[in-house]
Design a protein around this nucleic acid. Sequence first.
DNA 1: CTGAAAGCGCTAACAA
DNA 2: TTGTTAGCGCTTTCAG
Lengths: 342, 342
Amino acid sequence: MIIKKNRNAPTLVDVAREAGVSLKTASRVLNGSTSVKENKAIKIREVMSRLGYRPNELARGLKARKSAAIGMIVPNLSDPFIASAVKAVQEVARANGYVVILASSGGYPDVERSEVESLVGRQIDGLVIAPADSRNSNFSDVIPSGLQVVTFDQPIRKSGFDVITVANRRITREATQHLLSHGFRRIVAIGARPHIYTCSERVAGYRDALRHVSLEPRTCLVEHESVLTRDWLSEFAFKKHKADAIICLNWVCTMLTLRALRQLGKEPGRDVPLLSFDDFELADMLTPGISAVRQPAARFGYEAARLLFERLNGKAPEQSVSLVLPTELILRESCGCNKSSN
Amino acid sequence: MIIKKNRNAPTLVDVAREAGVSLKTASRVLNGSTSVKENKAIKIREVMSRLGYRPNELARGLKARKSAAIGMIVPNLSDPFIASAVKAVQEVARANGYVVILASSGGYPDVERSEVESLVGRQIDGLVIAPADSRNSNFSDVIPSGLQVVTFDQPIRKSGFDVITVANRRITREATQHLLSHGFRRIVAIGARPHIYTCSERVAGYRDALRHVSLEPRTCLVEHESVLTRDWLSEFAFKKHKADAIICLNWVCTMLTLRALRQLGKEPGRDVPLLSFDDFELADMLTPGISAVRQPAARFGYEAARLLFERLNGKAPEQSVSLVLPTELILRESCGCNKSSN
DNA sequence: CTGAAAGCGCTAACAA
DNA sequence: TTGTTAGCGCTTTCAG
């Protein structure tokens, strides 16, 4: 129970003493300064490895006023889109000698805010964040002026942070138009958390497409994904809107809709044509294959991290940059394509 | 380009000065000590919030010799099983006032080792790790004696670390026996990285089952998942072993096999009965549904973190604990069950 | 109940 | 090329 006082963890002082040099000289070799006599340097390095010396990054950070750590906050790690982005950020960070502190907001602005505060307290040098809510994510006031922030997936309004997105509205319009081109007229859009940016942009794109052909939009939007059940779908998509096709506005919605449809005895894509915003593993393995809008998940992470490190290295534009990544509309069968070959 | 000297970030000294008390008194309030006159405490708190004071955790950690951070190292964030575990660990850590630094090894012991060194240098208080390789994961020598380590998914041999696993061998034996019960006789096991613990245990379980009925094992093991292509599958599983059923030994193998089968014009589960070690989203949505061994992914994370924090709080058994989590064999149709209802 | 002073491990002036 | 001397922001004896 009592923690043994480890006379452990050799410090730079130990190294210096052992090598018979001053602290500063040891520090110099640690930091790769050239101005140290080669023989001393060798000796010091030898002592370091003999003692198993590891510099204390906390102390370094305290002194240098930087931690060599970046924070990353995401709403939901279970979403493969997010997982890919995290992975990419971690890789880029590592390549830059940085470490990433990962937090998750669960999509709640208040926990997001508290996570930001926690990370700031840890003196992170930068922050990559997929905001919980474009409008209500509220932490600009706790970001110290030196801290670089890059957002992805959705922007934070009036924040001035760099942002990486896709053309949500345009691609959703195109996807909807594609569905229209198959002759469907009662296309319902299924989305969650209608107030968040990505959802509202996609809804807007969907509306654009319908309005263009003078059709009435039929949206089924839930406050929270958990509402999206079989009965809900039956009630709204079918009883109310008489859906003859469905477009799901994010990955979670697609997963839930697929399952709900099955429970209603309707085969997704066959009995009910369907298109998914967000592609996913196995989308092509379902029968029929699910047509989808594909976002470059890993690239979100790469670009966010790249941008962040450019800023940290002082080589980035003055103003905040807004990067729009390309998307792809992957046509498989569920949208109505290639029915014959099915 | 030139970083502006921010006369920013108020420190405790600023707070104390502003409140007209000594540094120590401010510190006491910060740490919730009771022995401070209420009126002073109030004043200090008021100043803190007015100044937007945030304690510098680096400095705290330096002094306290602990960072309130734990490290987590995983082989592959894209694997949903791993993602769930990470999510769970993060949640538990947050609940304990800790932060998690996430690193990924890509399955390579040498990068894993370097990540461990990096984390240790950051003075993490604990480490949760899904080792890259049970036999070759090699970093015990860089773990300071005070650092608590919990491994999951696979143990590290002779490490003495706590470990959380499932009964890989038993459940794979049972899964194989289930396949046998359907009358299949040329069941091939497809796995990757045969030297790692989970793979070899599962292969052993598979062998147990076949040996029990005097059948010859037919294993198709690749050094790396990337080898698992359509042609490879055709060559080994079918030309060589004449597979009449397949058992995939992990998620990645399942994904690749599913796809390869389709490319060979064989419908997984219909033309080739199949069972997957690792359940996955949509396993039930494929036609036929894919039967699978389900590991309690999130529980791996919860238990690992729980155990770690028990140790950090000094309330855990002296000796290292080995926890075996329950698994489930989810029978859908791909194994040969319920063909009629299909 | 409160404060002065020392120091966690490291780096950065500033000499020597 | 080297060493001495201050701190980074915080906690903590140990006196008052």
